[in-house]
Structure formats: structure tokens, C-alpha cells
């Protein structure tokens, strides 16, 4: 295991009186590919959104290289540029072309010059197989293609960790494969990834660690072999059984 990047301590989040996350403890180390699985509404996405500060945790702390990011006056934009995020609904900028989507953050946030940013963007667009489409607008390409561009956009920022929030849930079945293939190659290249997913095959075969969440708590975590092969908790067994049947 490599150096620790993120450490979540006693994290809780409530929306009104509804407690979505309860006392979550959890770490991400360099090179980890962590899959977070669990039923809908179990708090997986909220956890991810808290880590990227898109939601404000109600209590607890998130340490990034030992520095607490959940405090007043913390430079959230700078932190977010180091922690990439890929969304379920892609969230590509509709007013820009594919290439422009991958350049704008590098130029505006990382202050790279345009030419360097363009080359960098092209490298990752080629990697995800979207280089021929650089002149297209997001509305002109398919969901799977959008998601691959979104991944390239996140990668172009050279993040230390990539967060994936159900990246294949909004896709037609035949497009899921192309996105998973890209994610798999990233995992094999040693990218640190935190993936909220319903793709059990990805969690089992690609990730190095699996976290099962149930009703706002981490119910079970371990290697894929441990969680899928020999689940300790009854809830985990029930959840996995439901998936096997489907």
C-alpha cells in the first residue's frame, strides 16, 4: 500500500432530519482502486460528493495529505483541482467543444498555456478514443462518448485521485462496456480511483478494495475476494445474493 492521500474521520451528513451518512471512517491510499457498492439511498454518492466538497458534511473531518479540508476558509477550488470527479450525468460544458472541455480547466485553473493544454488534452482524448471527435459539441455525441470525454477532462487536470459517481448508470447497456474499458485501463496504470458503482463485475475484477455501504454506514470492507467470496455480514450476503439473481 502506498502513501495515504485521503482520510475520512467520523464523517456525518444530514439533510434536514434525515441522516444520510453516519460516522464514516475510511482511507484512500495511492494506487488504491476502491469500489463503493450498496443499495440506492445508502449514502454512497453523498460520501463521494462530501469528499469533493460538493456537499458540506454535517460533522467530521476529511484529511487530504493530513490537512483538514472541511474547515472555514479552506481553498476548495485548489483542492478540487487535485481531486477529479466524473459524474453520472457527465456534466460536460454544453457551450464548448469536446477539446475545449478538456482545455478550459487546464488554462483557467492550472494556468497552463493553451498549446501545452491542447497537447495534454489530446493525449488523454486519444487515450479514451475520443480524439476524432474533438470538434463535436456534447449534444452531438452519445452518452458513452460523453462519459469518456468527461474522464479525459478530469485526467487532463492530472489529479491525484479520481472520483467516479456511478459513471455508467445513465448509459445504455451497450455503452457501459466502452466506459468500463477506459476505467479498467486507468486502474491498471495505477491511477488512484474511488468508484461508486452498481457494476459488480468491475468491483470484483478490477478494484483492489471493496466497500459495502448500507443505510449510511460502512457495513463491510476488504479485498474483492473477501467481500465477494466470503462476506462476513448478513446484510452484505443479502445484497450480493440479490445481484447474483439479477
Amino acid at each position: 500500500m502506498g502513501e495515504m492521500i485521503l482520510q475520512v474521520n467520523h464523517l456525518s451528513k444530514s439533510f434536514g432530519t434525515h441522516e444520510v451518512l453516519r460516522d464514516i471512517d475510511f482511507t484512500v491510499s495511492k494506487g488504491d482502486v476502491t469500489s463503493i457498492i450498496g443499495a440506492s439511498g445508502s449514502g454512497k454518492s453523498t460520501l463521494l460528493r462530501c469528499i469533493n466538497l460538493l456537499e458540506n458534511p454535517t460533522s467530521g473531518e476529511i484529511l487530504y495529505h493530513g490537512e483538514n479540508v472541511v474547515r472555514r476558509g479552506f481553498n476548495a477550488p485548489a483542492y478540487r483541482s487535485r481531486v477529479g470527479m466524473v459524474f453520472q450525468s457527465f456534466n460536460l460544458f454544453s457551450n464548448m467543444t469536446v477539446l475545449e472541455n478538456c482545455i478550459v480547466g487546464q488554462v483557467k485553473v492550472l494556468k497552463r498555456n493553451r498549446e501545452e493544454a491542447r497537447r495534454h488534452a489530446m493525449f488523454y482524448l486519444e487515450k479514451v478514443g475520443m480524439a476524432p471527435y474533438i470538434n463535436a459539441k456534447p449534444r452531438q455525441i452519445s452518452g458513452g462518448q460523453k462519459q469518456r470525454v468527461a474522464i479525459a477532462r478530469a485526467l487532463a487536470m492530472d489529479p491525484e485521485v479520481l472520483l467516479f459517481d456511478e459513471p455508467t448508470s445513465a448509459l445504455d447497456p451497450e455503452m457501459v462496456g466502452e466506459v468500463l474499458a477506459v476505467m479498467q485501463s486507468l486502474a491498471q496504470e495505477g491511477m488512484t480511483m474511488l468508484v461508486v458503482t452498481h457494476e459488480m463485475a468491475f468491483a470484483r475484477d478490477i478494484s483492489t478494495r471493496v466497500v459495502y455501504m448500507n443505510e449510511g454506514i460502512i457495513c463491510e470492507e476488504g479485498t474483492p475476494a473477501e467481500v465477494f467470496g466470503d462476506p462476513k455480514k448478513q446484510e452484505t450476503r443479502d445484497f450480493l445474493a440479490r445481484f447474483r439473481k439479477a
Binding site: P77, R80, N91, G105, L110
Partner: peptide, 9 residues
């Protein structure tokens, strides 16, 4: 959110 996630102010 997409813009925030890549670190834009």
C-alpha cells in the same frame, strides 16, 4: 458542479 469539480472558482 462539473466546473467546480475541475477546480474553477
Amino acid at each position: 458542479e462539473g466546473a467546480k469539480a475541475i477546480g474553477m472558482t
